[in-house]
């Protein structure tokens, strides 16, 4: 009981102190750029919950999920192919090294040429930027498949689809998930900046509008919302990870104990 109380105190202590501090320090703020936290919190519902949630937040997230989903699918398929074929890997490695090192935000002006400033542009930017972490991690995961396990699968004459599903993808899943996590944060960045760049709706667009219109409490509330979305997505991802990798995480826990 005592330790539980202690842990709760430790977990919420600092955040409470920080928020309180912000609240009171900013309370008497007359600076135009730094509105009181109270004002920001008060603007939050009227800014976001009345309409903008549907007109800005939802389109942003939908574009993110489509782009991210496409990237995962292509990244995993290509990653498995490259991971299984040494020859393919030899040919593709230097090119991949270059494409991976390219900072993904440069895609925004490039894709704009092809796809204008609509939804297609944003989805394409997100997809192209998110592919690399998941692809490269998948390659590493597939390469690391245990030989004995692969021999076992062959000796029991498991068919190619079964081998792909129960051996290759499952073996590589810890690395695939790591790649997917990196891709997700790249995706959020690209979602926001592709909208800041050129858009008619979306979270990034709205925040820039507020900033240009000098609506400071609204802008701040947007920054908070964006942070909140980042945190929520990361929590969802972690829950997904704990479920997909439950076997792997349990093994790790056992190994750490020994």
């Amino acid at each position: 009981m005592n330790t539980l109380l202690r842990r709760v105190l430790f977990a919420v202590g600092l955040p409470v102190i920080l928020v309180t501090l912000w609240w009171f320090v900013s309370a008497g703020s007359t600076s135009f750029f730094w509105p009181p936290l109270r004002a920001i919190v008060e603007t939050f519902p009227e800014t976001w919950l009345s309409g903008r949630l549907l007109s800005d937040v939802v389109p942003s997230l939908v574009r993110l999920f489509i782009g991210y989903g496409v990237a995962l699918a292509i990244g995993i398929v290509a990653g498995v192919a490259l991971g299984l074929s040494r020859t393919l890997r030899d040919y593709a490695e230097p090119t991949l090294e270059f494409l991976r090192a390219m900072p993904p935000p440069v895609l925004v002006p490039v894709i704009m040429l092809f796809a204008g400033i609509g939804d297609e542009m944003k989805v394409a930017v997100i997809a192209l930027g998110c592919i690399w972490p998941v692809l490269l991690n998948t390659v590493e995961g597939v390469r690391a498949i245990d030989e004995v396990l692969a021999d076992t699968a062959r000796s029991y004459r498991l068919s190619v689809p079964t081998r792909l599903m129960t051996l290759v993808l499952r073996s590589a899943s810890p690395q695939i998930v790591t790649g997917a996590r990196q891709s997700l944060s790249v995706g959020i960045i690209l979602m926001v900046i592709s909208e800041m760049f050129a858009a008619s709706n979306g979270l990034g667009f709205a925040i820039v509008q507020f900033q240009r219109g000098f609506e400071m409490p609204e802008m701040w509330s947007g920054v908070l919302l964006l942070g909140l979305i980042g945190v929520i997505l990361s929590v969802i991802f972690r829950a997904f990870e704990a479920w997909v990798l439950r076997w792997y995480l349990s093994i790790q826990r056992i190994e750490q104990r020994v």
Partner: peptide, 15 residues
């Protein structure tokens, strides 16, 4: 034909 390998830990599917 079935094979039993020495490395039991590596021949069972951990998932």
């Amino acid at each position: 034909m079935a094979i039993v390998f020495q490395e039991y830990g590596r021949s069972l599917f951990p998932w």
